[in-house]
Write a protein that binds this DNA or RNA. Structure first.
Lengths: 224, 224
DNA sequence: CAAGAACGATACAGATCGGTAGCGAACAAC
DNA sequence: GTTGTTCGCTACCGATCTGTATCGTTCTTG
């Protein structure tokens, strides 16, 4: 390890197939200076790792494939990361931050109505599910490929899910819904379920169905 | 390939950590006859494959690990299956049949009330989520590790999800719920979401929350 | 300009990957 | 009992895996 953690810029849209800001800057600057500062290498590696891991899985993606994709030497990779596992964790950290930032941005852009803010999350979900690079939840895939509860990869997955769940609980509490913890868990389940569903059967109507289901869970019933 | 497909006995409980009938018979008969008929070898291979693929993932499980686990020689494996991919597909086929049979059995055992039959599926889900060998949906994991829509593994995954969805739609139609196709999709999403949720955050209360959410989706509203 | 860090290229290590060849032993069916 | 098949065992193939060693070059910084 060379750099302290969390010194890279947060990049939204990583989950979708967009090239990151760092990559775009690289494209502009490559004529200005043939050698770029060190942080960009690490950024490029993580970006390519996210793309390839998402496309082919974690074990199926060898470091050699990463070299071909980025043009970065293998020695450089292992100067930034002690192991492939560390790169995987770094990729998950970036995806976590990007996904939660984007979710937050989508919610903030929605109307002030707390219920509408919750339902807006399914709008972001719909965009993601329809992305051509979408291939299921990278965290669920990582949890499936990596084992025990002590595994660093699995711990990062759990952290992401806990943070996401906490955010949804915050949204549900703002809507003054009864039993907010349970409803938040149910809405997260709808998100996860929609992701798995779309991964196998395609994205059409999936986010809409999930949103309508969430609407039913939030709405007040006369019995209450 | 030596045997025609679908000539092995359907084994319920494969998703849970139970040893299969074939394995138990082997334990008893090994003193009676040192050489067992051929179908058992294939059964044992598929059973061990299901166990190991579920535990460590598909790419991470090498055929050598399968040999250690079963004591079967590698040549025997490749006499039954042309490739590892074919073994993976065979494993998915068996899981599919076992899971859908078990689901059906759970529903039949429930009361005749169509709504209660739907909610009974979450009882089976709860048992599975609490199993010590539970590690997420093997089909979602396979879809994540194997790529394109033309991949045989992915096609088997899609077939399973389609059949499962069709069965749920059948259950929902029996309940005379409005918009049965959508409700069936939503209930399947709740199942998938509960699986992913429990995979990362643990099984406690997950199936209950999902069932309660399904209840809300099924119940008639005064507005309708 | 000089010192030090980062990088690329190559080559390699040791292990494991999926898959095959050849052989003898143990079974099944006739 | 003979014939044909299935099995286990061993050894092997070429490819790929993660990770390292070495060295010359290039950028950055002072």
């Amino acid at each position: 390890m060379v750099f302290s953690t969390h010194d890279w810029p947060i990049d939204s849209g990583v989950l979708r197939g967009e090239s990151s800001c760092a990559t775009l800057l690289l494209q502009d600057c490559i004529l200005w200076t043939p050698r770029m500062p060190r942080a960009d290498k690490r950024d490029d590696l993580i970006d390519a790792a996210i793309r390839l891991f998402n496309r082919h899985g974690y074990h199926a993606t060898g470091v050699d494939r990463l070299m071909e994709e980025t043009g970065i030497a293998k020695t450089t990779l292992y100067r930034h990361f002690d192991s492939k596992e560390e790169l995987i964790v770094a990729a998950l950290v970036r995806i976590d931050e990007a996904a939660r930032d984007e979710l937050r941005a989508f919610v903030e852009a929605a109307s002030g109505d707390p219920v509408a803010r919750i339902l807006a999350t399914f709008g972001q979900l719909d965009i993601w599910l329809r992305d051509k690079e979408f291939k299921g939840c990278p965290f669920v895939a990582a949890a499936a490929e990596f084992g025990g509860a002590n595994d660093p990869v699995f711990q990062q997955v759990r952290l992401h899910k806990r943070l996401t769940l906490a955010y949804f609980e915050e949204l549900v509490r703002a809507a003054r819904t009864p039993d907010p913890r349970r409803v938040a868990r149910q809405i997260v389940m709808l998100h996860e379920g929609a992701i798995a569903f779309a991964q196998v059967l395609g994205p059409d109507g999936v986010a809409d169905d999930a949103r309508q289901a969430a609407e039913r869970l939030i709405e007040r019933r006369p019995a209450d």
